[in-house]
């Protein structure tokens, strides 16, 4: 057996093949942001702040018919074992772009012409799958900011480890495993807004992996709902 999978099909961190890491989501953690969220996705710890819609500066950036969504995915220097240079790396620029593209279909940007919406994703501690955790938290923060949305966005990865399709790849499995596939999903509209694949899969494996990732997204969506419900409706005293 491979070191990533024990004889009784347990993974490095003791999870089964279809098990998520423990996820904790908190809403409205930053006072000065219009919307914010904190997520712990296994060992990932991420804070997301949303500002806006606000006036576009410089003005020439503004679009006459819709708002611009700007996303910044950034890893703190202390978020990984070896100090990370705080300047945006090639990887961070790419993740910022795919995050923006994963969130855009869910937002009704036409409702806020000539404005910008800023999303800041700060990774405080990283353990693989941070882009999915970032998208998940960003979607919660956008809902907290009260921006019109067609749907929430839930994200989760699946992949292939020790020859087996598994849900929610962690850092070790990502580095040593055979494939990693992050997926972002709009749960009510049943649309995929992010699909990346690093590694090789056969056609059947791909289908299995995608279905598993979508199942994972639905589990994440449930947790997003619980977090928002807790923030907005828990102190309901009487009917």
């Amino acid at each position: 057996m491979n070191m990533l999978m024990s004889d009784d099909w347990r993974r490095v961190d003791g999870r089964r093949w279809d098990e998520l890491r423990t996820v904790k989501i908190e809403v409205g953690v930053l006072k000065n942001a219009d919307g914010s969220a904190y997520i712990e996705f296994g060992k990932n710890k991420i804070v997301v702040a949303v500002y806006g819609p606000k006036e576009a500066h410089p003005k020439h950036l503004a679009l006459p018919d819709r708002s611009i969504l700007r996303c910044r995915y950034h890893m703190q220097p202390f978020s990984v074992d070896e100090r990370k240079n705080p300047a945006p790396s090639r990887r961070e620029i790419e993740i910022s772009k795919v995050t923006r593209e994963a969130l855009e279909p869910a937002l009704i940007l036409e409702d806020y012409p000539r404005t910008v919406i800023d999303v800041f994703i700060e990774v405080l501690q990283s353990d693989g799958g941070s882009r999915c955790a970032g998208i998940t938290a960003a979607s919660v923060a956008l809902a907290d900011a009260g921006i019109n949305m067609r749907d929430m966005v839930a994200a989760c990865a699946a992949g292939k480890v020790a020859g087996r399709i598994v849900l929610d790849i962690n850092d070790e499995e990502d580095k040593m495993g055979e494939a990693d596939m992050p997926v972002a999903f709009l749960p009510n509209l049943k649309q995929i807004s992010l699909l990346q694949l690093d590694g090789k899969l056969t056609k059947d494996e791909f289908k299995e992996c995608l279905n598993l990732a979508i199942q994972g997204c639905m589990q994440v969506y449930k947790l997003q709902r619980e977090a928002l419900m807790r923030k907005y409706f828990s102190t309901e005293v009487e009917a």
Partner: peptide, 9 residues
């Protein structure tokens, strides 16, 4: 009823 973005009413 209480709703979140995307909920079918």
């Amino acid at each position: 009823k209480y709703v979140l973005p995307g909920d079918v009413i």
